[in-house]
Nucleic acid binder design. Structure first.
Lengths: 235, 235
DNA sequence: TAGATTGTTAATCGATTAACAATC
DNA sequence: TAGATTGTTAATCGATTAACAATC
């Protein structure tokens, strides 16, 4: 099977989510045009992305159920993967309680916290254990995914322990870039960065607006530029 | 001031976080080379990104404090923005409790939940109010940022209310793309999509590994391809 | 001065869009 | 058949990297 583009892999779950909604609405087919409108991309990008699934039918579009299934297969949503979570603070607990991840094949098997008072708690069916047990259990249970939801200053230390215990992928929610060996995958979920992008675009929008109030003649130009802040913006 | 590239705006908070760490370590300067290693990008990209700050000094690198300050200015981290949060479930509470966002200029002024039992609760200094009050308060208080942390099936409805009440930017944590008018900015923080990317890369890595065990002669090739899963991967 | 490091330009790479042929 | 819609190729756009001149 050919290697998929990174950008496309990021869009596949979005197609899946849209299909899921369509299914709930009893829709049988959806066109590339419709997908495109909902995702704010060009219809040809949708066709390009979905063509490898070979589910598209001329004149009708993409069948909802079958296409969902194929995306699930392609992304390996079926093979559930187990993960350990470090940090049972509010973000960690939110992740434990977030049942949506199960659907995508992620099962948080246990959580760990440095605070001994938290040991024994159960959130969303996940038990919190003392931090010292992480390394030993991780390697013994052969868990290859580690989720980091500890403060920025302890994140690197936790990552090192996880990697030492055999982790091959780290999903990092701490606002800090991590250093890991070349064979380990890291994905940073940097909320601050996400917010800054929103905030920056908002300021750009606002200042553009006040400009076009100041200088009346810019109207047309400004309308053209608004192509950017149209609806959806994903990354 | 020229418009900054989207990709660059997403990296600026990362530079900021690294600088912050350097400051705590008492470091005075940091080179593009050092930044690049920590972020897993090319040093010339770092220089390109930071050149507009005009803080770089030949032979020394970038002064930590001044560069942090400039990034803060450029991103408008100083002008604190107020936001309303919809949904006081576990994710919503995590956001209320996440003090880190203040540093980046985001203040969650109030939270709203459809469950009347939650009204009156206070988390991280943020009070939870009944959902019915959202629209009225949002327009009266002139709040332009809405944060959505409700389940997928109610997210669009909440977004509509927020937009109706004058929201200009929506930070969406529901796993569902939202439809908003062209003048409103949306940023989707799609955890499922983030996880799927990690999981897909992990599977690719594992199968590549087993391949190179099967066919011994692929060794060189495989080593070359591993350029991809090197350390950090952000988006 | 020599060496190190920035800033900037040109080359490359990757992702998206536009156009259109294929087909149901 | 005519019309609608997919799949695919070529063109464009945007972002990253490589190379090197400028400079402290």
């Amino acid at each position: 099977m050919q290697r998929l583009e990174v950008a496309m892999v990021k869009r596949l779950p979005q197609y899946y989510q849209i299909l899921n909604k369509m299914k709930q609405h009893g829709q049988e087919y959806i066109s590339s045009e419709h997908f495109a409108r909902l995702l704010n991309v060009d219809p040809s990008l949708v066709r390009r992305d979905l063509s490898c699934l070979a589910t598209g039918i001329q004149k009708l579009g993409y069948p909802v159920r079958l296409t969902m299934e194929r995306i699930g297969q392609l992304l390996g949503m079926r093979n559930t993967k187990e993960a350990f979570l470090a940090g049972a603070g509010s973000l960690g607990r939110a992740l434990m309680a977030y049942s949506g991840l199960k659907e995508y094949g992620l099962k948080i098997t246990a959580a760990f916290d440095a605070d001994p008072a938290k040991a024994g708690e159960i959130v969303g069916g996940v038990k919190v254990l003392p931090a010292e047990k992480l390394a030993d259990l991780m390697s013994r249970m052969n868990i290859s995914i580690g989720i980091i939801a500890v403060p920025a200053d302890t994140a690197q230390g936790v990552a090192d322990v996880m990697v030492g215990a055999g982790a091959l992928a780290i999903w990092n929610f701490a606002p800090m870039t991590l250093q890991v060996p070349g064979n380990v995958i890291v994905r940073n979920e940097n909320l601050a960065a996400g917010y800054m992008l929103l905030s920056y675009e908002l300021e750009q929008n606002l200042s553009r607006r006040s400009e076009s109030i100041d200088e009346k003649h810019v109207n047309e130009q400004a309308a053209g530029e608004q192509a950017l802040p149209q609806g959806e913006r994903n990354t």
